[in-house]
């Protein structure tokens, strides 16, 4: 399964390209409470998001084993792991999108700038204004390009100088040159890659602090994917980006930190991306990255 010929510019050792992992066939995970490599975070990085024993349940089923992690400011943190391992569940617990699932329940704490987002006084709507999100499939509204980008600004009451803000967001999303002369046209007429960059523009327009991305390039062709990847690295100058991906090469290319979830919703390892891909602490992570399972 491992395919070493398609190595890329990132200095990783072995990368498993057949990333669309199906169901796991690994033995049941040992109760390994300590996440390997938690200590290689350099001192001085400011933490934006911190999970403390965060677990998520769907009904009686535990979707996420207690997660402890600190996500640093203005870096790209990638979340990788096989399908159904809880990557998206963790991502969606950050901005409380899991609230929309009736049976979902959360235990533990998730701190955003030292406030537990699951605290009594926190409004999930206010939280989502500070933490934007881009989804797996491009989901523009059936409105004009302009109105899509302006939507978040309007509902958040940030609608002074709307034209300038829309232009700025489209520029930051590397889309302005392609659409500046047709802002009034329907967003649905754009290509898939353009639509996804439009969704990114829509997410960054109200200037959130963190941007969550749930496999944002999985529905796109290689050219569009590479545009999105460039854009993500660009965005990390101003924003904290947390991205779920099933593509390990992508994680290696664009992220500074990597979280590896393995089966059963367990965060097995977290650390600098280069170290995780070169020299993971955990044997199972190494097996996963080298393509021995998953």
């Amino acid at each position: 399964m491992s395919d070493d010929t398609s190595m890329n510019e990132t200095p990783t050792i072995e990368t498993h390209t057949e990333a669309k992992s199906t169901d796991d066939r690994s033995p049941a995970s040992e109760a390994d409470a300590d996440v390997a490599g938690m200590d290689d975070q350099s001192i001085g990085e400011e933490t934006v998001i911190e999970a403390r024993d965060l677990s998520v349940f769907y009904g009686d089923e535990r979707a996420l084993q207690p997660v402890n992690v600190e996500i640093p400011d203005r870096q790209v943190t990638a979340i990788i792991g096989p399908s159904g391992c809880g990557k998206s569940t963790f991502l969606r617990s950050i901005n409380r999108m899991n609230d929309m699932i009736d049976v979902a329940r959360v235990d533990g704490e998730l701190l955003f700038r030292d406030t537990n987002v699951y605290g009594e006084a926190v409004d999930p709507v206010a939280l989502r204004r500070a933490i934007g999100m881009v989804f797996q499939k491009p989901n523009p509204f059936p409105k004009s390009i302009y109105d899509n980008v302006a939507y978040g600004l309007r509902i958040q009451g940030k609608d002074d100088d709307l034209d300038e803000q829309v232009e700025s967001a489209l520029r930051r999303a590397a889309l302005w040159d392609e659409v500046s002369d047709r802002l009034g046209e329907s967003a649905l007429d754009m290509s898939g890659g353009q639509q996804q960059r439009l969704c990114i523009a829509r997410a960054i327009a109200p200037d959130p602090e963190v941007i969550l991305m749930d496999e944002p390039a999985s529905a796109l062709d290689p050219v569009a994917t590479s545009q999105i990847e460039d854009l993500i690295e660009e965005l990390a100058r101003d924003y904290t980006v947390v991205i779920v991906t099933h593509n390990m090469q992508q994680a290696a290319r664009i992220s500074d930190k990597t979280m590896v979830f393995l089966t059963g919703g367990e965060l097995v390892e977290f650390g600098d991306t280069s170290r995780i891909f070169e020299n993971p602490d955990n044997q199972r992570v190494e097996d996963y990255i080298t393509g021995k399972f998953g």
Binding site: N95, M97, M100, V125, A126, R128, R129, A130, G132, M133, V134, F135, N139, P140, F141, Y151, G152, I155, Q156, C199, R202, A203, A205, P206
Partner: peptide, 9 residues
């Protein structure tokens, strides 16, 4: 989700 994601009520 797109609307909730940008902080819509």
């Amino acid at each position: 989700h797109a609307a909730y994601g940008v902080g819509a009520t």
